[in-house]
Amino acid sequence: RDEDEKEKIKEALKRGNEDKAKEIAKRANVSPEEYERLRKEAE
């Protein structure tokens, strides 16, 4: 379940949809550090 959320965040970031990614991260309680890591992976 947690991994699904992280995949959704990465997908949103790949599409350049940072607002959606942040919204998912907030809902999934993803830490800022984890969010940054996902953002780097998505580049």
Rank of each mutant, 00 (worst) to 15 (best):
Y35I: 03
E34R: 00
P32R: 10
A42G: 04
K14S: 08
E11N: 12
L13D: 00
D19W: 10
K10T: 04
G16F: 03
L38Q: 01
K20P: 02
E7G: 09
K6I: 15
I9R: 00
S31K: 06
K10I: 11
E43R: 10
E11K: 07
E41S: 06
E5W: 15
D4Q: 12
E43G: 08
S31V: 04
L38N: 00
A42R: 03
K8H: 08
E5N: 10
L13S: 00
L38M: 07
K8T: 07
A25T: 02
S31N: 08
N29L: 07
E34G: 02
E41R: 06
K26H: 10
R15E: 15
Y35G: 00
D4W: 13
E41Y: 04
A12Y: 12
E34Q: 04
K6D: 05
R27M: 09
E36Y: 03
L38A: 02
V30H: 01
L38T: 01
E33I: 06
R27G: 08
D4F: 10
K40W: 15
E11P: 02
L13F: 11
A25D: 01
K22G: 04
A12N: 06
D2Y: 15
R27S: 10
K14Q: 07
I9Q: 01
P32G: 08
I9F: 02
Y35R: 00
D19T: 13
K10W: 04
E41N: 04
L13E: 00
R27I: 09
E23L: 06
K40S: 12
E18G: 06
P32H: 10
A25F: 02
K6Y: 15
E41C: 05
K10R: 08
A28F: 12
D19L: 12
A12Q: 10
K14C: 07
L13Y: 02
R37E: 08
E18D: 08
E18K: 07
E36V: 03
E7D: 10
K26A: 13
E18W: 09
K26S: 10
E7A: 14
D19Q: 14
R1V: 15
K20N: 07
N29M: 09
E43V: 11
V30Q: 02
E18R: 06
K20L: 15
R15L: 14
K6M: 14
R37V: 07
I24W: 03
N17R: 10
K20Q: 14
E3H: 13
E41P: 02
I9L: 07
K10A: 02
E41A: 09
L38V: 03
E5S: 13
E7W: 15
E7F: 13
E41K: 05
E41W: 08
E36D: 10
R15H: 13
N29E: 07
R15K: 12
E23C: 08
Y35D: 00
K14M: 11
E36F: 04
E43H: 11
D4A: 11
D2F: 14
E43I: 14
L13R: 00
N29F: 07
G16Y: 02
E23P: 01
K26M: 12
G16R: 05
G16K: 04
V30I: 15
P32I: 10
K6W: 15
K22Q: 11
E5V: 15
K6E: 07
K14E: 04
I24M: 06
K6F: 15
P32S: 10
E34T: 03
E23K: 07
N29Y: 05
S31G: 12
E36G: 03
E7Y: 11
G16D: 03
K20V: 15
K40F: 11
Y35T: 00
N17M: 12
A25E: 01
P32V: 10
E33A: 10
A42M: 09
Y35F: 15
R39H: 04
A42P: 02
N29A: 08
A28H: 11
K40G: 09
N29C: 05
R27K: 12
N17H: 13
K40M: 14
D2H: 13
A12L: 13
E34L: 04
I9P: 01
L38W: 04
E41Q: 11
A42S: 08
D4M: 12
N17I: 03
L13V: 04
E18N: 07
K14G: 05
I9S: 01
D19F: 09
K10S: 03
E3C: 09
D19M: 13
E33G: 07
E5D: 13
R39M: 06
A28R: 05
L13G: 00
D2G: 12
E36P: 00
K20Y: 14
S31P: 10
N17A: 10
A25M: 05
I24S: 02
